[in-house]
């Protein structure tokens, strides 16, 4: 099915630089109940219904990222639900968005995609209440998700504070591994690792993050770790240190990056955000590729006070987020600046 995809998964996202330009031309929505709108480029919109309840809304859909239709449905649903989890919300209802070439592909395939999505939504504790399907040359699937949240407990990307630790809950490299798989160059075990990561809901990680008390969070998707971190740091008006050796990376991803199996989205992310990143001279090209790599159904990036980071990490690991790691820290500096160092306490540059 991936032969129908020019771009895979979240790599199909329109580049952030274009989006920013277009969105800036819109008048913007002003409403006293709107807690999070378009302006902050956050994961989901949040609208207050009353003192105790706000709606969290998001939509995500993309062309096949894998050939197995059930897995494609599962990954796409997982990715769409993630935006609600990243805000600290609870997904409640979902609408399916489907594009499908009924004359070219069997309806059984469509059934499998929907089943994959259905099962993942169920696992997330939400339900699918409807959807919309249109004929299209290229299959696409995703969800519009509505969740609920306490308006006083919304975790946006704008709350990072100097001194905070940064925790990432899943390994990076899904874009590169999917690109390698598309070229039939990915080892089965490496591809399985990426699939396992992409079909893991951020539900448990979100619950643990809320218990630990996060200052800010986002989920890592099409703009890559550096793109999403840049948005967080800019919105929070702080700078960030990242420690390359501490960043979890899917097995095989560095090797495939070295071979030149880097998705175009990674280069777009670099064009957009690269000027805000200072790499230590010893950070190699493949490592940079990983940091710019567009992720599909990536992990949560959580900023929280340093003294609570160890407990958060311990709980994440206990609950199955085995790759979770503290990957950096927030400091007072130029808003949006990211310094990538080899390791913690490495102040050579």
């Amino acid at each position: 099915m991936t032969e129908f995809s020019l771009h895979c998964g979240c790599a199909a996202k329109v580049g952030a630089q274009y989006l920013c330009e277009i969105l800036n031309q819109l008048p913007g929505s002003v409403n006293q109940n709107l807690i999070v709108g378009l302006e902050s480029f956050d994961d989901a919109g949040v609208y207050k219904l009353d003192e105790n309840t706000a709606l969290v809304q998001t939509v995500d859909f993309f062309p096949p990222i894998v050939d197995d239709p059930y897995l494609f449905g599962s990954i796409s649903a997982c990715n769409a639900l993630s935006d609600v989890f990243a805000m600290g919300g609870k997904p409640v209802t979902c609408l399916a968005i489907v594009c499908f070439p009924t004359k070219k592909l069997s309806l059984e395939i469509l059934g499998e995609i929907l089943k994959g999505g259905f099962d993942k939504v169920k696992e997330a504790g939400a339900i699918i209440v409807g959807g919309h399907t249109i004929e299209d040359e290229q299959p696409k699937y995703g969800l519009a998700v509505t969740g609920i949240i306490n308006p006083g407990k919304v975790i946006t990307n704008a709350g990072m504070k100097s001194g905070d630790s940064l925790v990432l809950t899943k390994p990076l490299g899904t874009g590169i591994i999917v690109t390698a798989a598309k070229g039939e160059l990915a080892k089965p075990e490496d591809f399985a690792g990426a699939i396992n990561s992409m079909t893991t809901l951020n539900k448990v990680a979100s619950q643990i993050m809320q218990e630990a008390g996060a200052n800010a969070a986002t989920d890592i998707t099409g703009f890559g770790l550096l793109g999403h971190l840049f948005q967080m740091a800019k919105a929070s008006r702080v700078a960030v240190n990242l420690w390359m050796d501490h960043i979890p990376i899917l097995k095989g991803a560095l090797e495939y990056a070295n071979l030149g199996l880097v998705p175009e989205g990674a280069y777009n992310n670099r064009i957009w955000v690269g000027n805000n990143v200072l790499f230590d001279t010893e950070i190699v090209t493949a490592e940079k590729d990983i940091l710019f790599d567009p992720q599909t159904s990536g992990g949560l990036l959580i900023a929280l006070p340093k003294e609570r980071a160890d407990v958060l990490l311990l709980k994440l690991k206990e609950s199955g987020c085995k790759s979770a790691a503290c990957i950096g820290e927030v400091f007072d500096g130029e808003a949006g600046l990211i310094k990538v160092k080899r390791r913690k306490n490495d102040d050579r540059n």
């Binding site: 690109t179 390698a180 598309k182 070229g183 071979l259 030149g260 199996l261 175009e264």
Partner: peptide
């Protein structure tokens, strides 16, 4: 051709 085709 889109990536990874040229490399392949």
């Amino acid at each position: 051709l889109a990536c990874p085709q040229p490399v392949l």
